[in-house]
């Protein structure tokens, strides 16, 4: 279970601008929350507060009832995985990218496990390919696989399909949908597309200029 109460972030002085304030939501295991809103509203900021890439200046996030500030950041980020708008793959092979997360914990993920993961996301036989020469859609699949290799409970998705063309977008969407269902992933999905929010998410959080303008069941919020 993932909850957020009165969560916010104000930049330190001299800028002292409030990027986000008073965000509240509760997600049960396996629920998907779509975060929608105009550019610059604070959607990415919200995700970064959830896995603590940025420090909240107010409120709290809890994961399974535990305040995330009491979990060491590395541990937290393993439990709350993230996929960004661009893949940002590391130089090296696809397999090395997938093995990156487990390796940080000193764990070794076997080549069989890597192959199985890659097959699952439709990238069978890609293990030894150069990560930096992949197409946008392939790279994004590797980024998703890389996050899954840590076996997270929560997945944060920051417009994971917005840099892709129509076909690649549909296939990555379908992939994410099946992964979320199979693994009962709790998911916070930032999207520009109302259509995507409607099809993917059970709940919707609309953000405007750093404030929540609507929150609730997807069908109700998106209908209004």
């Amino acid at each position: 279970m993932l909850t957020c109460s009165q969560l916010g972030r104000t930049l330190p002085p001299p800028e002292a601008r409030t990027l986000l304030s008073d965000v509240n939501f509760t997600l049960e295991r396996g629920e998907v929350l779509a975060v929608v809103g105009p550019s610059g509203a604070g959607k990415s900021t919200l995700l970064r507060l959830l896995n603590r890439l940025d420090e909240p200046t107010s409120g709290a996030v809890t994961l399974n009832g535990i305040d995330t500030r009491t979990i060491p950041p590395r541990e937290l980020r393993r439990r709350i995985g993230m996929v960004m708008q661009r893949a940002y793959l590391f130089p090296g092979t696809v397999a090395e990218n997938v093995a990156f997360g487990p390796k940080q914990q000193g764990k070794n993920i076997s080549t069989d496990q890597i192959d199985a993961l890659l097959t699952h996301v439709g990238l069978a036989g890609y293990a030894s390919r150069d990560a930096l020469t992949l197409s946008g859609g392939e790279a994004q699949r590797v980024a998703i696989t890389r996050a899954l290799a840590n076996e997270p409970q929560v997945l944060l998705l920051d417009e994971p399909t917005s840099a892709l063309d129509e076909t690649a977008r549909h296939s990555v969407e379908a992939l994410l949908e099946s992964l979320i269902r199979e693994r009962h992933l709790t998911c916070v999905w930032v999207t520009h597309s109302i259509e995507q929010a409607r099809t993917m998410a059970g709940k919707v959080l609309a953000v405007e200029a750093g404030r929540v303008s609507a929150y609730g069941i997807a069908a109700e919020v998106l209908h209004a």
Partner: peptide
């Protein structure tokens, strides 16, 4: 920044993320 924060988001230490 994207690569460094991706590494952090995968549970890397600050040292490991910035090493290259």
């Amino acid at each position: 920044v994207g690569e460094i924060e991706s590494a952090l988001a995968l549970g890397a230490s600050a040292d490991a993320a910035v090493l290259p």
